[in-house]
């Protein structure tokens, strides 16, 4: 089996997902080659052929241009799988490649089980084992699912590609996340409220519990999207990544994008009415209860200590 790995490069940096792509190839026992649309000054630690196109020419966000480059390399390498990170870059490119290649696409692979690919369904409450019926497959990998066990090493054998970038999308630059508000990464205790709080008024309970534990309050994305809390409070892939001594998740289901931001916490307490909520997979304790009842009592008792 041969796989082509598509590394991601953003804003002058090679992203760490490149190493996860290599780990995936190793776990499959597959031969691999890598393609990077980036820069010679930031090469991955990788032993194998690295096709390198200069980002200055190819454009940093130029999906149709990148698609053409990848198709060229596929022509040379004839891989059975084309592998990308399941990131805003990867999930954007993958369907473009799948249609061009008449290939099946498999999104967000989290494990190789008995040689087949496992993907999540229904907010991680179920798993699905899937297989392409086509000769070539396009695959994206869940962030963190194939983290290498040791620091990657190796020097790639660089093959340069030339490119003339023309695309149907214009890229006008980046906007950083707002740097105002609270810095959750410094908090030793974080009590977060999710959609399960039901209404904005109930955020007061979450704040009170956070205060009783001398910590900060955080939130899952729906709470921030609904503007019940400001964006600096959001925990997850598109918010803050935190690792406090105690993380209390109240009314949070435990979607992968939320878990990515808090699973390194030392101790996780979840309060949820749903015993099967995926947050249970990372929680040290799951209290099956209505947060509207449990949170105020817990706060009261803590304050009385």
């Amino acid at each position: 089996m041969k796989v082509l790995l598509i590394a991601e490069y953003r804003d002058g940096k090679l992203l760490g997902s490149a190493a996860e792509l290599s780990t995936f190839a190793q776990q499959l026992n597959a031969e691999s080659a890598m393609l990077l649309i980036g820069n010679e000054s930031a090469l991955p630690a990788y032993s194998g052929t690295l096709y390198l196109a200069d980002v200055a020419q190819a454009g940093e966000f130029n999906p149709s241009g990148h698609k053409q480059l990848i198709l060229e390399v596929i022509e040379k390498e004839q891989p059975q799988l084309v592998v990308l990170p399941h990131s805003s870059y990867g999930w954007d490119l993958a369907p473009r490649l799948a249609i061009a290649l008449n290939a099946a696409q498999i999104s967000e692979v989290l494990e190789i089980k008995d040689g087949e690919l496992l993907v999540p369904a229904c907010n991680s409450k179920l798993r699905r084992q899937v297989k392409p019926t086509t000769e070539v497959g396009v695959v994206t990998l869940q962030a963190g699912a194939f983290t290498p066990s040791e620091e990657p090493s190796g020097t790639p054998n660089v093959v340069k590609l030339t490119t003339t970038a023309a695309g149907d999308i214009q890229f006008h630059g980046y906007e950083a996340a707002e740097a105002t508000g609270v810095d959750l990464t410094k908090a030793e205790v974080i009590v977060s409220g999710g959609r399960g709080i039901g209404k904005p008024e109930n955020l007061v309970m979450i704040e009170a519990l956070a205060k009783a534990l001398k910590g900060e309050f955080g939130a899952s994305r729906p709470v921030v999207d609904a503007e019940w809390a400001e964006s600096s409070r959001q925990v997850g892939t598109t918010g803050q990544t935190v690792a406090p001594k105690l993380y209390v998740a109240c009314g949070i289901s435990g979607a992968i994008q939320h878990l990515a931001g808090m699973k390194k916490s030392e101790f996780v307490l979840a309060i949820n009415t749903d015993k099967d909520a995926p947050i249970g997979e990372v929680a040290d304790v799951l209290a099956v209860a209505d947060l509207k009842q449990l949170v105020p009592i817990l706060t009261e008792k803590l304050n009385a200590l």
């Binding site: 799948a98 008449n102 087949e116 409450k125 798993r127 699905r128 019926t133 304790v285 209290a287």
Partner: peptide, 30 residues
């Protein structure tokens, strides 16, 4: 173009403790 071989609940259930019961007692245990 994609075939589903199987659908299953997640294998590794969390190793954490699951607590149920009356909120006041739960709070004490927590």
């Amino acid at each position: 173009r994609l075939q589903t071989l199987s659908m299953t609940p997640p294998e590794k259930k969390g190793s954490g403790l699951i607590l149920e019961g009356d909120p006041a007692e739960l709070a004490d245990r927590l």
